[in-house]
Each structure stands twice: as C-alpha cells, then as structure tokens.
C-alpha cells in the first residue's frame, strides 16, 4: 500500500470510545502524508484532531483500519514497540511545551535518547548541536523556568527532532505564545520543512494553518475537505480533496525575523 515516499498513512481509520454509548472520535479517515510534506489539520473541538495526532504519534491504536508510520503498521504492535516508534520515528511538539521541569534544556532535548540507551556524552553532544540548530546554543544549561515561552517551544522542537524522526507532530504549537513569538516558531517550522522534515500540525487558527502546504479539514471525525495551498513556490501536493474550503493563499508568516529573548 505504502511506498517509501509516504511517511504516514491512515486507511479507513476508526477510533471509537465507549462513553456510555459508543462515540466515534474518528469515523473512517484515510490520509497519506508524503515525506517532506507540511500538513495542517484544522477543525472545531471534538472534530477528532487530537485523536488523529495521537494515532499517528502511536500514543493510541485505531479501533478499526490501519495506521502506518514509516512503513510499519501500528495496530497490532506491542506497547514496547509502540514506545520505540514514539521515541525514534515520531517527534511531538505540544501546545504547553511539556518540558521536564527539573531538567536543563540540554537534558530535555536529550531525553528521547535516554530511552534509546545512547551514551551520555553522545546524548549531550547531539542535544547541544540540536539546540544550536533551533537558535538556543547559549541556553543549554537553563531550566525551563529560566526560559521564555518561545525558547521553551524551541527546546521542545529540538527534542522532537533529536532522534531524526520520520514525522514531526505539532499540536497547536503556537497556542500558548503571543502572536509575535508564535510567528517566529512558525518561521522555524518552515525552515525545518525546507530542510526536508515532514510536519503534521494540528491547529484551529487559520493563519497558522496557512503556513502548511495543505490543510486537512476535519469535522465530526471525518475528513470534510483537503485544501491545497500554493504559496512561496511550494510544489503542489498530489492529493486533491473536494475543495470546499475557502483557500486563501496568504503566507504572511514567513518572515525571517530573529527571535529575541521575549517572554510569553
């Protein structure tokens, strides 16, 4: 089904929760995320955005259908194997940053490598390089509470990328940041995208979603529409949806502004 150009694919995925009566969080979703693509998922709350992200991130397995991450189907994997995929093939960026409060930036970034039994020296070396990459080379020994919101999110991004994952998953990455800082994080995402990283981002803000090359609209657990955006010379995605979205081509966030030490 999947070729090597596909980072993640979902086929007719259903996720049902038993809350007194069955609730279909996802109801037959099929989606392919090509390698190197930048996809945004939009939808009102309760539309299944988070469930979709959890399934792709192997935090959960589908009730029906298949989720394939980097060529591996997740539904019948053991928990230990799911944990391995979370650590090596998936990088999470959360709205609330979710850094370990007692660990330094370096240690936070290196955390996934701890569970892969990477030696301490190598962990720290790679973590420092990654922090350098996201522009925090001078903050390696700071704890999260000594960093601004934007800096924390950069640490989180560095952590998500440390294991060179097949896909970067972002859940409202700018949700807890002010507009200016959020824009700078989006700029970082675009740089990562330009470097060839695969990004799947959940957001409810149109202007954030417009940084992606396509927007998947979810409603009541189903794909309502897939909207292709053509901006800044991006190659147009292969998949075509039923195109009910308005589809503004706006790409205002691609500024290259340097991020300062602002506090969120």
């Amino acid at each position: 089904m999947q070729d090597s150009d596909v980072a993640v694919s979902l086929t007719d995925v259903r996720k049902t929760y038993q809350l007194g009566e069955p609730v279909h969080a996802l109801d037959g979703v099929s989606l392919e995320i090509p390698r190197g693509s930048y996809t945004a998922v939009m939808g009102p709350s309760g539309s299944g955005k988070s469930t979709l992200l959890n399934l792709v991130g192997c935090l959960d397995t589908p009730t029906e259908g298949t989720v394939t991450v980097d060529g591996r189907e997740t539904s019948d994997l053991r928990e230990t194997e799911l944990a391995r995929i979370r650590g090596e093939e998936v990088g999470f960026v959360f709205q609330t940053f979710n850094l370990m409060p007692r660990l330094t930036a370096r240690e936070n970034v290196a955390l996934p490598l701890v569970f892969q039994d990477v030696s301490k020296d190598e962990r720290h070396e790679r973590a420092e390089a990654m922090l350098e990459r996201v522009g925090l080379g001078d903050r390696v020994d700071h704890r999260p509470n000594e960093l601004s919101g934007g800096q924390r999110q950069r640490v989180a991004v560095a952590r998500a990328l440390i294991a060179d994952p097949a896909i970067l998953l972002a859940d409202e990455p700018t949700g807890n940041l002010d507009t200016d800082t959020g824009a700078k994080i989006m700029a970082l995402f675009e740089e990562l995208y330009d470097e060839g990283n695969t990004i799947l981002m959940v957001t409810h803000e149109r202007h954030v979603a417009e940084h992606a090359e396509r927007i998947v609209h979810l409603l009541d657990g189903e794909v309502e529409a897939v909207e292709e955006l053509s901006g800044a010379g991006r190659p147009t995605g292969a998949e075509v949806g039923d195109g009910s979205g308005a589809g503004g081509p706006g790409d205002d966030g691609r500024g290259d502004a340097e991020e300062g030490g602002e506090r969120a």
Partner: peptide, 16 residues
C-alpha cells in the same frame, strides 16, 4: 503524572 506522559511520548517504555 504529566512527566510520565512526557516521557512516554518521547519513547519511554513501561519498564523505563
């Protein structure tokens, strides 16, 4: 609990 969640999200196994 939240830290456990973070660790699991970045690849911690039950055993870890």
């Amino acid at each position: 609990t939240r830290e456990i969640g973070i660790m699991k999200a970045v690849g911690a196994k039950k055993r870890d």
